[in-house]
């Protein structure tokens, strides 16, 4: 049965596409395509690109390493106050990043809660103005994206499969390596990519906590804002186009696994006769 889709729905959907897509068109029609290569090849741009790559990948790695155990605890361990812990963990997703930056400053800054201990105990002068600080700021906003995706994956995983493996002689490590992680792989890949993409676009927490220092904390978004304010719209536009291109490539790559999940296994190619 096929019916003509209602006109009202089509119209609203069209408006939605316009709201989301028009800014992109606006940017692209102002892009100085002929000088794009030269602008992107400038030393300052390349430096920001390098800082962005390092900071976003490191933040994604931190998110996976710390986020996976956290997701496991949230999915598998019943404990009092789990709802509260989950709310705190997901808070950075809804918080304005600048608030996160200020919070990080009072926790890890020179006079902060832990900052003083870091200075006295470990000789860490300060995280502010360092790449490590930028990584922490990015991981702060990016990790919830990994945790929420990994937790959902863990909840979908049938724990009886892990028990079945144990009754066949598999110890904890073997179960993790051969059953849990392979079954979780699609969720982990999606979560890692999402958190990496969030870290790549991070601005507010980074500039508030880690500052805007070329070569150390000035990532592409910070460099774009800097160029825009300094009256260099061409440079800002060029770097924006670069970010958009990278993001689109990632989203299209994720399409199969996450945006429109497909059947994971092929259809049976043959009938198996009974003995």
């Amino acid at each position: 049965m096929s019916r003509r889709p209602p006109v009202g729905v089509l119209a609203m959907a069209g408006v939605a596409i316009g709201v989301l897509g028009l800014p992109l068109v606006g940017l692209l029609q102002r892009t100085p395509w002929s000088s794009l290569g030269a602008t992107l090849g400038e030393a300052a741009t390349l430096e920001a690109l390098r800082v962005s790559a390092v900071v976003s990948l490191a933040a994604a790695a931190v998110s996976v390493m710390l986020g996976l155990p956290l997701a496991w605890v949230l999915a598998r361990l019943p404990f009092r106050g789990r709802a509260l812990v989950r709310a705190v963990v997901l808070l950075p997703m809804v918080l304005p990043p600048v608030v996160g930056g200020i919070a990080l400053f009072f926790a890890l800054g020179r006079r902060g809660l832990i900052g003083r201990a870091l200075q006295n105990g470990f000789g860490v002068d300060t995280l502010i103005g360092t790449t490590a600080g930028a990584v922490i700021a990015a991981a702060f906003v990016a990790m919830p994206f990994f945790v929420i995706t990994a937790e959902a994956g863990l909840r979908q995983l049938d724990p009886r499969l892990e028990s079945a493996a144990a009754t066949l002689g598999a110890g904890r490590w073997t179960v993790l390596r051969r059953i849990t992680l392979p079954l979780l792989a699609p969720s982990l890949a999606a979560g890692a990519t999402l958190s990496w993409a969030r870290a790549l676009g991070e601005f507010g927490a980074t500039i508030t906590f880690a500052g805007n220092h070329p070569g150390r904390t000035r990532t592409l978004p910070l460099a774009i804002a800097q160029a825009n304010e300094a009256g260099q719209p061409e440079a800002a536009i060029a770097m924006s186009v670069l970010l958009i291109a990278v993001s689109l490539v990632v989203l299209v790559g994720l399409r199969h696994r996450w945006l429109a999940p497909r059947r994971r296994w092929p259809e049976p190619s043959q009938e198996i006769p009974s003995p």
């Binding site: 009886r160 499969l161 028990s163 009754t167 066949l168 059953i179 392979p182």
Partner: peptide, 13 residues
């Protein structure tokens, strides 16, 4: 021991 469950629980991957 080895156990065969009524749900089979074959590893899908």
């Amino acid at each position: 021991i080895a156990l065969h469950s009524q749900h089979n629980l074959l590893f899908p991957h």
